[in-house]
Design a binder for these strands. Structure first.
Lengths: 338, 338
DNA sequence: CACATTTTCGGGAACGTTCCCATTTTAACA
DNA sequence: TGTTAAAATGGGAACGTTCCCGAAAATGTG
């Protein structure tokens, strides 16, 4: 298994207690320190993490569970988490549950088994109330990203989806658009629900009528956006399209361009999320930026407050809704006069 | 710390040995089994992973180190690794080293400290010969993705970059292109080197002359591709552009479209990698597909052969080069007649 | 130099498992 | 029922650390 502190002690002519102390940063006599350094170097000694964790009941590691680890979408969140964890001297390990695991719930065992000190669950997919209850009742440090604080007593962070949609609709309205189509996301996903609600509310607030034929549903994939847009184009009659996420918007863009229509001169298009590609497509996509890094940082900070026992009692303050903001690019223009 | 097997034993009126055996799948008397099930359920018992790992000197976990965990690019590789690990009953944990860590080498300590049983390093960035030597000399199971087997005795998997470029050039040549520009990647990255070499060799093999003004260097980013393309457009005179990766190609596409030129009627464009966006851009991008999932699976299989001791001696067989293949989409056409 | 105080050190228990080995219980068979 | 074989069980050592506590050494003070 490699050399142990006992081996180091023997070689340095001292005891394992002294080695342990030295490794943990306590002072030892100058002479012993030098002997220890030599012994550690010579044996290429590394402390066994499992033994340490066993006795200390602490791993200095947090687990981050992402429903699809390679979604560009999550990169900012992950980075935010890493920054905060780094500051606290914690490591992050990532788990992806798309492939091998059945549900987020299974990852609680990481906590029970002492593999991590806390868990951040990142997902914008559907979570059942039952799932949420299990996390809450576990009494372990768990933070959720992508949840509108639907379960009392659980830490969660999300973006204010409805507010984002309001910005979009107001912007389009300001450009002169009155006929606006909408590509919705999967109805079960929380974020999708809130975005649709935000769209409806702001349309109504501005006195715009919502045409049922101008609302298409997609699965938030590129292909889904493409198909939804083709359906909308058959109906026709609108001057702008709001897609409820960027991936969908880019699919829609393809459908529009395939019909020989031009964006933005003939049709304006807006997305939501501001994923990196949105800046690259042609024309570049006007969208609403989620403060991804901040989301990750907030979730991590909340988690560490619990891990370090600063927050004994979880209360409603542990739920944060962040304001997104509009990024104006080239995919919108005034509507063409009829 | 939660209940231990000793607590379970007491509640079920038996000994910790019996509990341990039962948990490890050995037979116990029917009566004790029922009592144990009840006790485990009642106490909500979970085995302490650190204690198990300490005594067994085995974690059943492999570490996957990715230089940028949220690069879409890596998603297929990660998936391939997960599939193979799942089959063997191993867990995967992912480490991202962009942010907090200095180099891939640091992750060797995961092995020394007994946190993982093996390590897969995924990176297409530069690796120094010194790095490679450290991995080889560690004598622990390590597999590399994105390395052309440059260090004898190290397991590695990569795609045959030169062969991919040959496919591209032959395809363009077949369409009638004779004047071909090239956007190269960062000169230090291995893959970039091999792609450029492949381009040159196949140009020469087909009797095409390489114009130095038609070779631009980029950093493999979208923005880099955009800038490189603008430089190429100033030179002009070619009918097709080969970008050495898709991200660059998409940046180049933007530059071309901004100039009011059309792809493919005025200029043909090819990328490399086949990342997911390539299918979505307009026009969809002709490119070379890397067999990402297979790459991941091969690396993992090699690693498990070492972990499970099937491969005592690492030999040259442990280095695999996979053939990529051309995906024809809409970004290429015959050259326009002058 | 004697004594008190501080610093450094070493021994041993503990963490929660697994696994070996000896013992007890059960089953098989005459 | 007695004997033997097989199955089930319990006790204890071990894994490599940390941490407590008492002993030893070093330092300070008169």
């Amino acid at each position: 298994m490699g050399p142990t502190i006992h081996d180091v002690a023997r070689l340095a002519n001292t005891s394992k207690s002294t080695v342990s102390r030295y490794l943990n940063g306590q002072k030892v006599k100058r002479a012993t320190q030098e002997a220890l350094d030599r012994a550690i170097e010579e044996l290429n000694f590394h402390r066994n993490a499992n033994a340490r964790r066993l006795v200390m009941d602490k791993t200095n590691t947090i687990g981050v569970v992402v429903d699809n680890i390679s979604n560009v979408f999550y990169s900012g969140i992950i980075r935010g988490i890493e920054i905060v964890a780094g500051r606290r001297g914690f490591n992050c390990i990532f788990y992806s549950w798309t492939s091998n695991y059945g549900s987020e719930r299974e990852f609680l065992s990481l906590l029970y088994e002492g593999q991590v000190d806390g868990l951040i669950l990142v997902s914008f997919q559907k979570r059942t109330a039952e799932d949420l209850a299990v996390f809450r009742d576990s009494e372990y440090p768990v933070a959720l990203v992508g949840d509108h604080g639907e379960m009392e007593g659980l830490m969660s962070v999300d973006v204010d989806n409805a507010a984002g949609l309001e910005e979009i609709v107001r912007y389009l309205h300001g450009l002169g658009h009155r006929e606006i189509a909408y590509i919705a996301g999967p109805p079960h996903a929380g974020a999708s629900k809130y975005r649709l609600k935000g769209f409806r509310q702001s349309m109504e607030a501005l006195g715009l009528t919502e045409n049922p034929a101008w609302i298409a549903e997609s699965d938030w994939s590129n292909q889904g956006g493409y198909e939804a847009m083709r359906r909308l184009l058959k109906a026709g009659g609108f001057t702008a399209v709001v897609a409820s996420n960027d991936e969908t918007a880019i699919g829609a863009l393809r459908a529009i361009q395939e019909q020989g229509l031009s964006v933005p001169s003939r049709l304006s298009l807006v997305g939501f999320d501001d994923i990196s590609i949105s800046e690259w497509v042609f024309p570049s996509l006007t969208t609403v930026r989620q403060p991804f890094q901040e989301i990750g940082m907030l979730a991590a900070e909340g988690l560490f407050r619990r891990i370090e026992g600063e927050d004994e009692r979880i209360d409603s303050r542990s739920y944060s809704l962040l304001k997104p903001h509009l990024i104006v690019r080239d995919s919108c223009d005034r509507p063409t006069s009829i």
